[in-house]
Write a protein that binds this DNA or RNA. Sequence first.
DNA 1: GCTTGTTAGTTACAAATGCAACAGTTAGCG
DNA 2: CGCTAACTGTTGCATTTGTAACTAACAAGC
Lengths: 148, 148
Amino acid sequence: MKNDLPPDDFDLTDFLPYLLNQAAEECSLAFQKHYKDRYGMLRTEWRVLFHLGRFGTLTAQEISARSKMHKTKISRAITKLEHRRWLKRDTDAKDRRRELLQLTPSGQKVYHDLVQVAHDHQLELLGQFKMTDAKALQNMLKRLGRLK
Amino acid sequence: MKNDLPPDDFDLTDFLPYLLNQAAEECSLAFQKHYKDRYGMLRTEWRVLFHLGRFGTLTAQEISARSKMHKTKISRAITKLEHRRWLKRDTDAKDRRRELLQLTPSGQKVYHDLVQVAHDHQLELLGQFKMTDAKALQNMLKRLGRLK
DNA sequence: GCTTGTTAGTTACAAATGCAACAGTTAGCG
DNA sequence: CGCTAACTGTTGCATTTGTAACTAACAAGC
């Protein structure tokens, strides 16, 4: 006979999606302050900027695949970043549906500035753990996010 | 002289808020399917239901403090859950600003059903890790979310 | 008692979001 | 070629969300 109640050792307070959301909110909000205050950016825009800064030239579709963000979110973020002249778009000559996106020099400046902040922020977040635990955490998160 | 570029060993792909968001999205979306398909609930409503099911009687304010969700989100979720007769509210006689919320019997049924699903989902998520690593992950996430 | 300040919860309005439908381009295949 | 199917990116619309203002209730000090 199937046991249709969860075992006693299951506590929703330990539920992984819940813990992940709490932690993600806490950590992201703290960092959001920086790109919001300095550059008036939204989280979506920061993420697009970050992908282009990290990976170079990408299409919207590729950003969507990597970040798992909805393509309309990305489309709108790109428009905003373009208006601020932080990225430029060029139609791919080989496939004119695709638009090759890359940061302008001033976009790269913003990126490098924020990477520095991100780095400091990260040190603070991970500083509370042992180095090996921190590495293990990163690896487990990558697997959960299907990033590897 | 201060080094104003992040060291070479810092890669934004390892950035904790990014990893947390990816993992949280991936894990939450998979679980969302269940409460959405079965009960047409939104994530906010599921979270309120889950807090009441887990902790018994709470006020909106207490749910907000525990979950870190914005109080307007909670207020709206409560209204919806009330309309479905999954929770009832009673004004606190000692402080008539506060409303004591608790699940109705049918609300508890929904809760128990979803806890079962959550339990199975969790087993699947954590099954890929060694037990000790899984525990360590949960503890680190709690600390990052300032839950302990 | 009265006034001021604080708290619980709701609501109006504006902003962000997701979905579905769309235009434009390419690919496959007869 | 000519047709259909698939893909990239955008837009219109309805839903969800956050901010700020609001009501109602309490609390502290006079």
